[in-house]
Structure formats: structure tokens, C-alpha cells
Amino acid sequence: MTEETPNKSAVVTGASTGIGEATVRALRKEGWNVFAVARREERLATLAAETGAVAIPADITQDADVAQLLAEVTEAGGADTLVNIAGGARGTDKVGEAKTDDWTWMFEVNVLGTMKLTRAFLPMLRANGKGTVLNLTSTAGLVAYEGGAGYNAAKFGQHALTGALRLEEAEHNIRVIEIAPGMVQTEEFSLNRLGGDRTAAENVYQGVENPLTAEDVADVVRYAVTAPHHVNLDQIVIRPVAQAANHKVIRKNT
């Protein structure tokens, strides 16, 4: 734990599973007060019981939920760090077969959800004097690939939002961090993207030696937000060694 971490407080979205859940655990181990945010109340309650985090069920795409979340965090003493992890992908269709509902969902969760949470909490972060916003994007937001257009577009949007935010908030001493993971094997990401087809989801990682885990990414998040405040890790790209690029993945025994 660094000298700056005592009494630090973070809002972490997407906390019911995967990288969000792992981030809550990582920050709680550092002694942070953590507000764990997600839609699934039962999973949040279990996480809170195990870690001591404060569970706040909310849908980040809904204005009323965001307002209630802000009110509850304010009443509980506020936060100096916002960790936007909630997001996801739906479908692998090419543009010619794109499903509007899938694209709409991806933009609402990845881009508009991030915007709504950040907009709501910026006054609190500015008032703190040493605020941090960390956005989890993706390597899909840096390089496009076939069958990824909807997710590419959403994550490119979130990436652009993050860059603009950094420029706008530097004068308020808010550091803005982007972490862009590549291939991460989590409980639900590929399963949700592929419509619940477990076999197809498992095939995404077939033959890949040591894909990243949620804990790997959460450890990078922890490091980024616990570094001294004058240290801003603008953008961190993290991939497994087996994934040299989005289009080059080494698969063994396949």
C-alpha cells in the first residue's frame, strides 16, 4: 500500500462478475472503501459479505439509477475514484448482417453508461482535488477486426471519450486512465457475446496458453489507481503473450 492509499474510496461498476468483481476484491485488500455497483443484487450482496464492500445495485444506463447511486455515495462520505468497468459485447456479425438491437445495447452500456457515471461524479471528483477516473476499454477500441464492428465502434467511442475527458479535466487535477485489455478469459464475457453458447465461448480460448484472467487485469487497475496522484498512466494495453495482436493469436494443439 502506498502512502496515498489510506482512506481512499472508489466506485467500481460491473462489480457482479469478471474484472469488476476482481477489482473490488483487489482494492478492498488495499484497504480502500469500495462501492460495488452492478445490476444483479444477489451477486453484489455475496461480494459485499465476502469483502466488506458497499453493494449498490444500479443499472448505469438508467438516469434514475445513476442519480440514486450518486446520492447514496454522497451520503456515505463520497469517493475520489471512479472505475468504469461495466461494459460488454453482443454478437460477432459483420456490418452487412448487423443487428441494431445488439449495437444499441453496446453503445448504451460501453459509451453512454460511462458518460452518465462520469458526468454524475465529476463535481465530486473535482471537489476532492485529487480525483481519478479509470475507464476499462479494450484493444477492440484501438484496432478494428472482422466481425467486431459493433464492439469496435462502441469501444472506439469509449476510448475517444476517455481522451477528451483527460484534456478537459487536467485543470481540475483529475487524472484519467485508460486500460485496454486484449484476450481475457472471464466467466461471462464471451458467453454473453455469443448468445449463451458455451461451446462457442470456450472455443474462443481453445489452445491459447495462459489467456489473461480477471485478476490479472484487476491487478493493473489496482496499481494504476494506487500510484501517487501525480503519476498518470494515460493508456495501458495488456495482452497475454500468446496474443501478439488482435489478429494474431498463438494456439497450441489445435
Rank of each mutant, 00 (worst) to 15 (best):
L212G: 11
V109N: 04
V221C: 05
T100M: 12
E171N: 08
D219M: 08
T162L: 02
L167G: 10
A153H: 05
G147P: 06
T199S: 03
T199N: 12
A127Y: 05
T118K: 01
A164Q: 09
R126M: 05
P181R: 09
L136D: 09
G182L: 10
V133P: 06
R119H: 12
I177S: 04
Y223Q: 11
A201D: 09
A200V: 08
A153P: 06
R175E: 06
I179L: 15
V176M: 03
L122V: 15
H172W: 06
G91K: 03
A224I: 08
G163A: 00
V221Q: 03
T213L: 09
L191T: 07
L191D: 04
W105H: 08
N203T: 05
T137M: 03
G148Y: 05
G91T: 11
R90I: 01
I179W: 07
P123R: 04
L191A: 08
E108M: 10
R90Q: 13
V109P: 00
G131A: 04
E169S: 01
R222G: 03
H159L: 04
M183Q: 05
N210L: 11
G195R: 06
D219Y: 03
K94S: 12
A170V: 15
F107M: 15
G147Q: 11
T199H: 09
D197N: 15
D219N: 15
K155D: 10
A120M: 11
L191V: 13
T118S: 15
A149T: 14
V221H: 06
V208G: 05
